[in-house]
Amino acid sequence: MIMMVRKAGSLQTRLFLVFFLSLAILPLIYDSRSLYILCTQIFIFAIFAMSYDLLLGYTGIVSFGHGMFFGIGAYSVAIFMKNFGATTGNFLFGILVAVVIAAIISYAIGMLSLRLKSHFYAMLTLAVSQLLFVVAEKWRSLTAGGDGFTFSVPDFIRDRFSFYYVCLLAMIVLFFVLRHFVQSPLGKVLKAIGQNEQRAEALGYQIINYKVIVSVVAGVIAAISGGLYAGMLRFVNTTVFSIEITLDALLMTMIGGIGTLFGSILGSGVVEIAHDGLTSLAKVHPIFERWIIFMGLLYIVVVLIFPSGITGSFNNWLEQRKKVRMQQKEIQMEEAGKKAG
């Protein structure tokens, strides 16, 4: 039995590797700037969606303001690039500062609200993210308010081809790191808490500690994705703090399948490609500019037809197949037994 599990594990890992490898080959085959940009954006949002999945999919924590960490990452990188010059060092330092700020804020929010009923965390994250939005609007000397500002970036970021690989690598590394995280002893407790908090506590696990840990990890990862996003756009304004960013993450994890991490990557692909397609249709009819409406419709379809998302539905199908095979085997064995008898 253990052998079988291990085998399935490595098969899964191999599938992931094949998938990532094809992404690595893609730009060598298609030389298209717009494709690079689209894919880079998919990778960045995949990282963001994975961080949201840690909260929602694994631990069952709902956040309405997760986008604030994305925004912190974006502003931190942008401000460093603008004020201290477009060097790789400043880019990395901007991300590092964002990570520290995100860790502090997520820790504080977690400690304040995760002890209480679950909607307190949702509401507090929403409130703090709105507060940051206002700060970004008002602190014009630093952020240039709602208009935002452009800045220059090092060559490896400006070059679409090389930045494609930077983001792909970041996504792959973070995917495997987070996968290890959720499969570790700590991660298993997170999953247990997501399932049945009271039971986990009765086993002696102190729920609040786990929730704060996952809140900090998710905040930090989201900040990294925000930093990459600013690098890609070479521009930042207050939209990075808008509620839509959080809704995107929600949509991506739900469509891809919550609690799977890989689903977040697929979800990001579906949402970004659909977004891209609908935006180009806007020339045909202005209704397509309201792409969020279509996303809403897509979301409803997903919830009705594939409630466990793409990855979840696929896993269910695998389970089902395994079950049928086991039953067949049992029947065969029974028949063989009858013959022998």
Partner: peptide
């Protein structure tokens, strides 16, 4: 796992 005191290990 709980009985073994393994709580936060990665």
């Amino acid at each position: 796992q709980a009985a073994h005191g393994i709580r936060f290990q990665l």
